[in-house]
Design a protein around this nucleic acid. Sequence first.
DNA 1: CGGCGTCTGTTCACTAGTGCACATAGTTCG
DNA 2: CGAACTATGTGCACTAGTGAACAGACGCCG
Lengths: 243, 243
Amino acid sequence: MTTATPDQLRQNALLSILHDEDRFHLEPHIVAVYKTAGDVLLEAGDDVIDTWFPCGGALAAFCLTTQDGVSVDVGFVGREGAIGGIVSNGHVPAYSTAVVRVPGLFLRIKTSALEQAKQESLALRHWFARYSDCLLAQVFQTAACNATHTIRQRLAKLILAGLARTGDMEYPMTQEQLASMLGVGRSFVSRVIGAMRQEGTIESRRGQIILKDLAALRHQSCGCDQLVDDHFDVVLHGIYPKI
Amino acid sequence: MTTATPDQLRQNALLSILHDEDRFHLEPHIVAVYKTAGDVLLEAGDDVIDTWFPCGGALAAFCLTTQDGVSVDVGFVGREGAIGGIVSNGHVPAYSTAVVRVPGLFLRIKTSALEQAKQESLALRHWFARYSDCLLAQVFQTAACNATHTIRQRLAKLILAGLARTGDMEYPMTQEQLASMLGVGRSFVSRVIGAMRQEGTIESRRGQIILKDLAALRHQSCGCDQLVDDHFDVVLHGIYPKI
DNA sequence: CGGCGTCTGTTCACTAGTGCACATAGTTCG
DNA sequence: CGAACTATGTGCACTAGTGAACAGACGCCG
């Protein structure tokens, strides 16, 4: 838990693009922490004291639990974004829990320090506002996707998103976890994965999905994340590199 | 299409609470327009030139159309909120189309004027940021709801939300429209409404739902909107600090 | 009054997804 | 090595939801 190095700051897209002035404001307050899968960054109902920036291949999810006890992931944040006092400026309780899904490095800053910096810099404020718009777009699309697409399509989408993070062909995730991220029954996920394996799209070991045929998996996915990625491109275009 | 009267401004919750200074900034730029069901306030992909404030019982929806041509409403905004340059400050194309669902009065302001006012007032900025957080919370909940709840639960929720706007027992909406808002097949909606009618929960005429048993309808609803309303209360209740 | 367009109820055959139960296989750890 | 977990595959009976088709019913307008 040491103050983050410049090299680490560069591993988050929102931070890597900052002008020197803005960076100098934030840098002293940023701490680097390694987090493993399942770690909770933000608890629903708690004050948003910390804001988190995933680095490299790390991935976190906004996870809601419905009244009947089923939990669902409704949004994902990787190195392109941040979690915490982004939309709200941190004055309010978190509506959603944020959980680490793919382990890795996370940068942490006190939301109060971030907000102070936002007050002093219009550029910083607008930059984060743009990212907020992208986050909202992502959740819009998730809501539409959940209403209309099959579990098979959504599962393919989820696996693709996970693989994009790890950067290789293997995605370490149990079927139980996948089912819980989608908010569906485990046995059905098992069946869908079985079908995909038979068709040669993926392999699967205990706690692991292995990509065999990218084109086929893309084809089975609903492709909702592509639309969102495009919006990210337009809104944050050229100002920072794509993942 | 005349400049809005003070009386009209009071019919939107976000505007009604403003301090005189902030109000004086915005007031001259606000225009009152009557809109009917189906009118489009914002088109996905277009620049967010205008920002809209629903008044009284008016209601608009964020409506997404998936690749396969099915459209779904993923969020609703009534007198408690606003549509347009809220999250993003209007620098970006709208991700979602915004459509009027319950007709009524809408106040319109150029997003650029709103943003100018936000730059000059920290209080205004924070106030809208808080509302943005509520909007995000609402969409989070919609995404979770769509993933886990039955069409029957979601339909009950939708009818309740509509009735809450009109203020009486009648909700003017065809089954076709309800189905399209949920992104589901019309015939199934017809069946569910038939069942509700048999149980005495509602009546239904051509193009109209009539509430008969509020408690029963509440009981059949998933209740997701209640959770969101609670968040609105916590985040926006009474707090609009003068800064 | 008659005609036309739209909304509604219902049938039918079918696919998607649930939830539980139980057998089996892979991992971990003493 | 063997015990104890945990993850996975699969059978089963069942509910939820689809999508097309068609017959009425309602309401409006000339």
